[in-house]
């Protein structure tokens, strides 16, 4: 089984790339691979703990019916597989004041990305735009 490192940049709820990254991580762990995710810049907010769903007045659905997803919940689901490690860039977190995370991610820096990249079979850099 292989190890894949992914660097993410996009902030939550702004880009189709977040969903794609989650799909790739999910597919990789289903195939038995392990995945390292290095969250850089806006992506450090993906794991913020206080994200909450809400009702949808346009569709007339309650909070229970809407089942609004959160990126923190997506990440938690991936971390629960035991095959995913997650590092949030510490300086990016400090810039944004976004240090209140779900359980699992740890603080790191660019050196961790390099280390992971060297340890992994491959590295996928998913930049923002």
């Amino acid at each position: 089984m292989a190890k894949l490192t992914i660097a993410l940049m996009d902030s939550p709820y702004e880009s189709g790339t977040t969903t794609t990254a989650m799909r790739i991580v999910d597919a990789a762990v289903r195939k038995g691979h392990s995945v390292n995710v290095f969250a850089y810049e806006g992506a450090v907010s993906l794991t913020m703990k206080e994200q909450k769903g809400h009702p949808n007045p346009v569709k007339g659905t309650t909070i229970e019916e809407a089942k609004h997803p959160t990126t923190a919940n997506f990440v938690a689901g991936l971390l629960a597989t035991g095959k995913v490690e997650w590092i949030n860039c510490g300086m990016c977190v400090d810039e944004r004041g976004s240090g209140d995370w779900i359980e699992g991610p740890r603080r790191g820096g660019p050196g961790d990305l390099l280390k992971w990249s060297e340890e992994s079979d491959n590295t996928l850099i998913m930049g923002t735009r």
Binding site: A2, L4, T20, R23, I24, K31, H33, N122, L124
Partner: peptide, 14 residues
């Protein structure tokens, strides 16, 4: 699909 994509992503020669 993404499953096929992953097969290539984890290939260290790609």
């Amino acid at each position: 699909n993404v499953d096929n994509l992953v097969d290539r992503l984890v290939d260290s020669d790609t």
